[in-house]
C-alpha cells in the first residue's frame, strides 16, 4: 500500500539522506521510509565525478565545486506533479512553450535570413519601396490573434476547474507566520506547527561551517510535516498572522497567497497511487527568513491518515489535559 516506485515521487530531494533526521521526529508520519531508497546512488556518482575532475587536473576548489554541480543539470522544467491539476498545468505549460518555439523558429528564421543574405558586405541593395503592405500587416495581426485564442481556451477551462473548491473531504487551515506554517485540521483539535528542520537551521547560519550538501534536504525539510491522505479532495484555508506569505508546492500545482485578515482557498486531490513526500517553499517575500520557511507535505493512504489523525487527536487531548490552554499558543488566530 505504501510502496513507492523506484525513483520516488520526492522529485525535489537530492543528496544523501540521513534516515535518523526529521522524518523520525514526527514518528507517527514515518509511514514510508522506503522513500529514501534509490537515492543512495548519488554519493557514488559524486565520487566518480570528483575523480574525473581530479584527472582533468582542475584545481582543488573546482574539484570540490564540480561534483556538486554535476548532478542537477537536468532540472530545467516544471514537475508533472501528482495531481490531475498539476499534470494539466504541465501540459498547458508545454503547449505554450512549443507554440513559442514554433513562432520563434519562424520569426528568428526570417531575422537570421536577413542578417545573412541582406548584408551590405554581400552587396545587398536596399529595396526602399518596401514601406508597408496592408495585406501582410493584416495577416500578421490576425494570425497571432488566432494563436492567442487557441491558447486562451484551454487555459480558461483549466482556470475554472482549478478554482472549484467545492466538495472537499477535508479542510485544513494554513496559517503563515514569520517564519513557518501552522496547519489546523478543521473539525479536530489537531494542529501542527511546521518550521525549518533543526539540521537545516543550523547549517544555514552565516559561517556555520556545515557542508550543506551533507544536510538532508537542506532548506526543504521541516520539523513537522503536513500529513494528508491521497485520493481525497483537500481544501486549504490559507491566511497569515503577520505579513503576506505564499504557500506553494509545485508537485500539487497549488500556489496561494497567505494574506493577513483574509482567507484564501485552494484545493487539491493527490492521485491515489502517489503517496510520498512533496516539498515547496514560501514564494512571497516575507522578511528576513523568507528563504527558510519550507513546506513539506506527506501524502499517505486514507487509512494511514485516519490512524495518524486519531493518534494525534488522542495525543493532543492528553497534552491539553496536562497543560490547559497551551496548545498552539505560538500562533493563535
Amino acid at each position: 500500500m505504501n510502496k513507492f516506485p523506484g525513483e520516488s515521487h520526492d522529485a525535489r530531494r537530492r543528496g544523501p539522506r540521513d534516515r535518523g533526521d526529521e522524518a523520525r521526529e514526527d514518528s507517527e508520519a514515518r509511514l514510508c521510509d522506503c522513500a529514501a531508497q534509490g537515492l543512495g546512488k548519488r554519493p557514488g556518482n559524486r565520487a566518480g565525478l570528483g575523480k574525473l575532475a581530479g584527472i582533468a587536473s582542475i584545481g582543488a576548489a573546482a574539484a570540490g565545486a564540480l561534483p556538486a554541480a554535476a548532478s542537477d543539470w537536468g532540472r530545467i522544467n516544471l514537475p508533472r506533479g501528482v495531481t490531475n491539476v498539476s499534470t494539466r498545468i504541465y501540459a498547458l505549460h508545454m503547449m505554450a512553450f512549443w507554440v513559442c518555439v514554433c513562432i520563434g523558429v519562424v520569426v528568428f528564421g526570417v531575422m537570421i535570413w536577413s542578417l545573412i543574405f541582406h548584408r551590405k558586405s554581400r552587396g545587398a541593395v536596399p529595396d526602399v519601396t518596401l514601406l508597408h503592405n496592408t495585406k501582410v500587416e493584416v495577416v500578421w495581426t490576425a494570425i497571432p490573434v488566432l494563436i492567442l485564442v487557441g491558447m486562451a481556451i484551454p487555459a480558461a477551462r483549466l482556470l475554472v476547474r482549478i478554482n472549484n473548491d467545492t466538495n472537499s473531504r477535508l479542510s485544513i487551515r494554513v496559517n503563515g507566520f514569520q517564519w513557518g506554517w501552522q496547519y489546523k485540521y478543521v473539525g479536530t483539535n489537531v494542529s501542527v506547527i511546521s518550521k525549518l528542520s533543526m539540521s537545516s537551521d543550523a547549517a544555514r547560519m552565516l559561517d556555520s561551517g556545515i557542508d550543506v550538501d551533507r544536510v538532508p534536504d537542506y532548506l526543504l525539510n521541516v520539523d513537522h510535516q503536513l500529513v494528508v491522505p491521497v485520493g481525497e479532495k483537500i481544501r486549504l484555508l490559507i491566511t497569515s498572522v503577520d505579513v503576506v506569505h505564499s504557500w506553494w508546492v509545485p508537485d500539487l500545482g497549488v500556489k496561494k497567497d497567505a494574506i493577513p485578515g483574509f482567507i484564501n482557498q485552494a484545493s487539491f486531490i493527490i492521485n491515489p497511487s502517489k503517496t510520498g513526500v512533496y516539498r515547496g517553499q514560501c514564494t512571497e517575500l516575507c522578511g528576513r527568513d523568507h528563504a527558510f520557511m519550507p513546506i513539506v507535505v506527506r501524502a499517505v493512504t486514507p487509512a494511514a491518515f485516519r490512524a495518524w489523525l486519531k493518534r494525534k487527536e488522542a495525543a493532543e487531548k492528553e497534552a491539553s489535559a496536562r497543560a490547559p490552554a497551551s496548545t498552539s499558543a505560538a500562533v493563535s488566530t
Partner: peptide, 15 residues
C-alpha cells in the same frame, strides 16, 4: 522550483 528573493537555496539549484 526556486522562488525569487531568497537569500539561500537548496543544493539542487546550485548548478
Amino acid at each position: 522550483g526556486m522562488p525569487r528573493r531568497i537569500a539561500d537555496y537548496a543544493p539542487q539549484f546550485t548548478d
